[in-house]
Every structure is written in structure tokens, then in C-alpha cells.
Design a protein around this nucleic acid. Sequence first.
DNA 1: GTAGCGTCCCGCC
DNA 2: ATCCGACGCATTCGG
DNA 3: CCGAATGCGTCGGATGGCGGGACGCTAC
Length: 595
Amino acid sequence: MKYLTLAETYRDLQATSKRLEMRDILVDLFRGTEPRLMGRVVYLTQGTLGPDWEGLQLGLGEKLVSRAIALTAGISDDDLEALVHREGDLGLATEAAFASKGPKQVQLFQESLTVDRVFESLTQVARVEGSGSTEKRIRLLQQLLMDADPLSARYIVRTVVGKLRLGIADMTILEALEKAFLWAEDEERVMGSDKVVEAIYNVHPDMGAIALAVANEGAEGLAGFGIEVGVPVRSMLAERLGSTPEILEKMGGRCAFEYKYDGMRIQAHVGPGGVHLFSRRMETITSQFPDVVQAMESAFAGHEAIMEFEAVVHNPETGELLPFQEVSHRRGRVHGLAESVEDYPLVLFAFDLLYLDGEELLLQEFQLRREALESLLGKAGEGPIRPSTLRWVEDPEGGDDFFLEAISAGCEGIIAKAVGEGSHYRAGARGWQWIKYKRDYQAGMTDTVDLVVVGTYAGAGKRTGFYGALLMASVNQEEGTLESVCKLGTGFKDEELAALHERLSPTVLKEAPGNLRSGLQPDFHVQPELVLEVLGAEVTLSPVHRCAYGHLRPQTGLAIRFPRMVRLRDDKGPEEATTSSEIEDMYRRQLKRAD
DNA sequence: GTAGCGTCCCGCC
DNA sequence: ATCCGACGCATTCGG
DNA sequence: CCGAATGCGTCGGATGGCGGGACGCTAC
């Protein structure tokens, strides 16, 4: 099968926004594909090379792909950038570049690419590692692009940068698989009426394997798949809602509230094959959490189980729960693992049990799963694993109390969970069975806080155009100190920034005694005399929400992001920065110079 | 050769 | 993570 | 009565900050 066939299908898919039409285009593609190739065709259409938990990554993003394109098409980086600007995205820019100039090799060989060739080349790109690997990757991509016609090049490039932009994703592909291989030729049904393939995908999210099976053996091919320890189950997701009365209405008057912990979601599989940990997006993260693996082994030895919990960093002395930033130090870690386990100790708040010793609990109602979870944890004894805090709620008052309790416990809010009929674990679905209610929108948390402007920064944003923000600090009037530094606004418009300046009517604050420090980064101390050129004096920006940890959110419609950056000046005048990490880097440099 | 920094990518929320 | 637009489908509305 | 309007759920894409790793480059 030629890759061009695939590319043409992609082009057709893009031409419509109607999902039924897209599904049928895919159905035609699948029915016309040799069964042998179905896995690869489906992976490519998903924009991947294999299931998420295998963790293959191409390691090429926009920048590096751009280099490969410029080399292949024989144009300069600047020209390519101009093309991207004109055409709208890197894929279209490549197509245009290839169409007008055309790499010589294309004209010489005209050896059209096959699906196999593209798939194998990309897999090869993903496998390269070590010194020189970036160059090697670029070269491999370049070789592939040399044999690509303009349309194929468009989609190869988009595949590599991870933005296929077809208007289709998992759900549409699943529908198409279902129709192509399980329905009679010209049958029509209401969309989503059967969902046999989706049901399998939810407990075995490997679209390529499923496609291969179903294309070869039809419905019988699905028999081999089912929930399995070691294979991640698609996570159930929540919708967001703003108040307890709304939640109770959606839930039919009765539901369970649980703390929404500010941590990282982990799905743990325990079985004879050992412990496997998966992230919310089904990446394998086992090796990053040896402490979790150990806790699972000792707590659930002899059991086969799949459970979900939120991993939260806490202070073992005080029991205080620390915010997400802390646990993110643990994520993706390879070096200094032992230290990070020590520095960021975890508590694991288990909130669901999907499978236990041969029983598919995910099919059961919430109460049953919860009971099973609690009894399993009860037997597990002391340790870092605990059940999530839960309350059965039937009236808004009880719900609000619980919400405030959750906030003061250091949580983000609550998750409301449907109970009774229909409250089985809906793998892969986002919906009202689980409702998120987060602190951002909680009225009644309002508090007036004096803020001072301690810095501004502005620059040309990469995508959004103008970028600007104010660095604010709240003032502790009694102590005369600054606390809770935060950034106000990202990417807001020129006029808005000017208006804010106006409104804040700055005067100079001479001294900022004490350490200026981020509420989220206790170890991130800033010497104000080093870093502050204070532009503004005390201003009152009210009302302001003061939330747990001192995050601030004014009712200006602008977000205040979690702070840890400081705007700096040096002798050369203000530096510009567009991201918090750049600002942080600036700060580090400044500190260094001060030494 | 390598330490230290910069760039880029990626996956968490 | 949040937000938003487009579609599909069921129900209600209105000429 | 039937087509139009409405309401609601669903899906997919676009957007953001942040932390960490891998690799590349360069000055010693």
C-alpha cells in the first residue's frame, strides 16, 4: 500500500467536519487495506507508532523537523519560517516547498513511499539514541522526505511533530473499525449504538493490535482481549462544574464527594508479573516510583489488582499535603531517584478499584467498588496507601462544608461521583458521572489582599503575539514584608497591560524587607535587594481570592499563575522573557553575577 | 575530555 | 489542565 | 402536522505553565 493513498485519505478527512462523513471515509480506507497492514495504518492515523505504554518517542519536534525540511527542500530556515507563517503550519509549508522546488531526488527516483517504509523509518527514528542521535534522526527523516511527494510530505511532517489535525481521533477511528469489520456492508445505525470495539479498547488501549485482530478475524478477533493486569485501563475522566447545587442536580440529588487531591494520578497493577504503574495517559511510569512499587508489593502481596490513586507529596512530620509542583519533581525522573524518593515522600490516596483477583469490579456500581477498595486497604494495614476521603452527600450545605474542608486540607476541590445505577467505571469517558469542582471558581473564598507590583515583563509571544505580565507580591501589613509572589496574566493584550498599569498607579517602594518568597517553593528564596527593582507601591486589587497556599486570583479575568519567577533588571536594562522558565533562568544568571 | 550551559522535546497538570 | 466550536441526536416549538 | 429551533452530550483541537531528561556546543 502506498503512503500516498493514506495521505489522500487524510486530505479528504480534513475537507469535512462532519463526523459521520469522516467515519465513512475511514471505513472505506480500512476495507481497502490489506489486513496485514491494518495495525500500521491505524497507528499512523492515530499519529503514533504503538501503544502509549510502550513509550516510543520520535524525539523530533517543530524545530528539528524544520531543519530536516529545510535541508531536504534546499531552502533556508528563514524561508521556511516565512512559509510556515504564510501557509499556517509546518505540514502545509513543507508541501508548498516541495511542490514549488521539489527535492532533486524526488524527480530522479519517483519511488513512491509505502506505508511500510514510512512506518519503519519513523520507528527507526524513534529508536536512535545516544550521542549524535539528533543528527541521525534528522538525517533519517530527511531521507524519508526525499522520497516523498508534496502531499505525503505534508502528513509525514505533521505525524512527526504530533499534530495531524485531521479532525479525527480515537473515537472516530473506533467507530470506523466497528463499521468496517463488524457491520454488514451497507448497514446504518445511530452513531455509537454498539461500541463493541470501543469497549475492548477501553481495557486494552492498543488500537493497532485491535485493528489487526478485527480486520483478520472480525468479531472473533476481539475474544482475545480483555482486562488484564499489566495492560492499562483507560482512565475515567470528569467534567467540571461550579457549584454544589448544580452538582446535586446533575447527580439526581445524591452522590459521593471525594477530595480532589493536588497530585499525580497513577494506575497501579499488581500481579504475579510484579507491579506496573501507569500515568493518566497510559504511559509506563513504573521505574520512576520505586517507593510506590514497594508499597504495592508489600500491601497487596498475593493479590491481583488494578487500582487508581492520587500520589501526593506530603510532610511526614506535619502530615501537610504539598501542591502539585512538588510531586512533579518525581515525574520523569531518571537520575537521583533515591534522593528524590527521600526528598518528596508520597502518600497514595486510593480512590478506585477496577479489578481484584479475577473479578472485573469496574463493571460494578460505585458503592460496591468503594466497599471492595476499603476492605482491601483495611487488610493492607499501615503504610503510605490510604483511602481517599469521601462523604456521601445529599444536600448542598453538606457538600459545601466538605468542599471547604478539602480546600483547607490542601486539595484542589472535590470530585463528585455518581452512585447507584449507571455508576460503573466508565473507562475512557469524560462525563457527569464524575464531576470536578475546583477552588478557582469558589465564591465566598474572597479576601482582599494588598498587592504590590514588583516587576513587569513584556515581549513578543511566539504564537499569541504580544505577551505581557506583571509580577505581583502580596504584602503582609503587620510585618511589612512581601509574601506570595505571583505572576499576573500571560499573553494578555497591550491595552490590557496599559490599563492595568494605569489602575495600579505605581509609586516606588524603596525597601522590601525580608525574603521574598514563593508560596509554592519554600526552598526558593530571593534576596529582594538583589532582584527587585520595585516599580509600584502598594495597590489594592480587590477582591482577590486567597486560596490554599496563598495562590491569588483576582477577579480581573486574568489568571494568576503559580509563582516562582522574578523579573530582573541589570545594567543593560530590562530583559525580556516569555516563559517562566526563561525568567527563572534570568534570575539564576542574575544571582550568579551578584556573587 | 568534560563541566556547564543552552536548546529542544516531552508529558504532567 | 481549560476552553471552545462543530456535529449528532432527541425533544420541543411554532407556523 | 412537519420542519425549524432548541437543548444537551460528545468529540476534537487549540491553548498554557512547569519540571525533567537528552543531546549539542563551547570554553576551559
